[in-house]
């Protein structure tokens, strides 16, 4: 007789990010999952821990010229340029669909000025169906924004504080890896009122077409993502976990349940899957199944027992 595995051994996958309870630690990374609906043919969206939406700005942004992407060894560079429909069109056109799905929805926001961050947060905190805000202070693509905000602890804290002043929604601050010491920025945003941090955003990179002696990307530089960045991301997540009290969400090259488990064991409370969604649009489902299977195999009843369980003492 075939037994329903969920019925025999229901493992506890729920995690908490600030005031937000997630069904499981598997989230989607901003910019890799559209506004959710694109993935409905391939995923049971309500099984996800959370959907983190494509980054929103106050006004629509056209994005960068093509070519915008380039595959590199075990990864890809992108310079999409934060193309999006703007926060108001998002609320009118995309939210009605998302409200029908029983899944946590986290809006990712960015601005060109500190005040713009504050204004988007103000708008979104009154939108039915938005369960949390992820603040992108790190995107390296936009010359005026991105890197300047996220690389400086004072500016990062300032944005965090301004957004905090506008919203009671759980607030995640997404950090850039393009800094000397990520713990310095992480501690600054924690002190300024962030409920959680997520890291890493893409690493700034470049690729050259030697035959034509031109950059492969129209923008010249772009953000590197995919399996190539995973060890760097894991190291930074581990460092952040050890310097913060708030939850850390791990992002960077996660493509399998094994990858996700590495981050959870290193101390991440949840993880976001990014580039892997492009390779297999139902990868998130496989990762959730794989985490559950691992916990069953190791007799771990609740995911809290797994998070941060890394053994670093050689005597142990």
């Amino acid at each position: 007789m075939k037994l329903d595995k969920c019925a025999i051994n229901p493992v506890g996958l729920a995690v908490r990010i600030g005031g937000l309870q997630l069904k499981n630690p598997v989230m989607t990374a901003s910019g890799t999952f559209g506004y959710g609906q694109e993935f409905a043919p391939f995923c049971d969206l309500k099984r996800l821990g959370a959907i983190v939406l494509k980054g929103l700005s106050l006004e629509p942004r056209p994005g960068n010229p093509s070519p915008r992407i380039m595959e590199t060894p075990c990864g890809m560079l992108n310079a999409v340029g934060l193309q999006n429909i703007g926060v108001r069109a998002f609320i009118a056109e995309k939210m009605p669909y998302l409200r029908q799905i029983d899944v946590a929805v986290i809006a990712n926001i960015f601005g060109e000025t500190v005040d713009e961050y504050r204004r988007i947060a103000e708008i979104l905190s009154h939108v039915d169906g938005v369960d949390g805000i992820e603040v992108n202070i790190s995107c390296p693509n936009v010359k005026k924004g991105g890197i300047a905000f996220g690389a400086n602890p004072d500016v990062a804290a300032d944005i965090t504080q301004k957004v905090r002043g506008e919203t009671d929604l759980p607030m995640i601050v997404k950090l850039t890896p393009n800094v000397t010491d990520i713990t310095e920025i992480a501690m600054a945003v924690e002190a300024a009122g962030a409920d959680a941090v997520s890291l890493i955003n893409t690493l700034t990179g470049m690729s050259v077409d030697i035959e034509r002696r031109r950059p492969h990307l129209a923008n010249i530089t772009g953000g590197l993502s995919g399996p190539a960045v995973k060890p760097v991301a894991l190291r930074m997540v581990w460092q952040a976990v050890h310097s913060l009290k708030i939850p850390v969400i791990g992002i960077g090259g996660i493509s399998t349940a094994d990858d996700a488990l590495e981050f959870l064991i290193a101390g991440a409370t949840a993880i976001e899957i990014g580039t892997a969604n492009f390779i297999n649009p139902s990868v998130t489902m496989k990762v959730i199944d794989g985490i559950e299977e691992y916990m069953t195999r190791h007799g771990i009843g609740r995911i809290d027992e797994l998070i941060g369980s890394l053994i670093t003492d050689p005597q142990q």
């Binding site: 910019g31 999952f33 960068n64 093509s66 915008r68 992108n78 193309q83």
Partner: peptide, 27 residues
């Protein structure tokens, strides 16, 4: 043809500039 990652509209990598004939364009 344009380089693309996902094929389903999520990555926004395969942008093509479209014109409305009056000089304005959109991706």
């Amino acid at each position: 043809e344009e380089r693309m990652a996902c094929g389903i509209g999520a990555c926004l990598g395969c942008a093509v500039a479209i014109t409305d004939g009056k000089g304005l364009s959109d991706y």
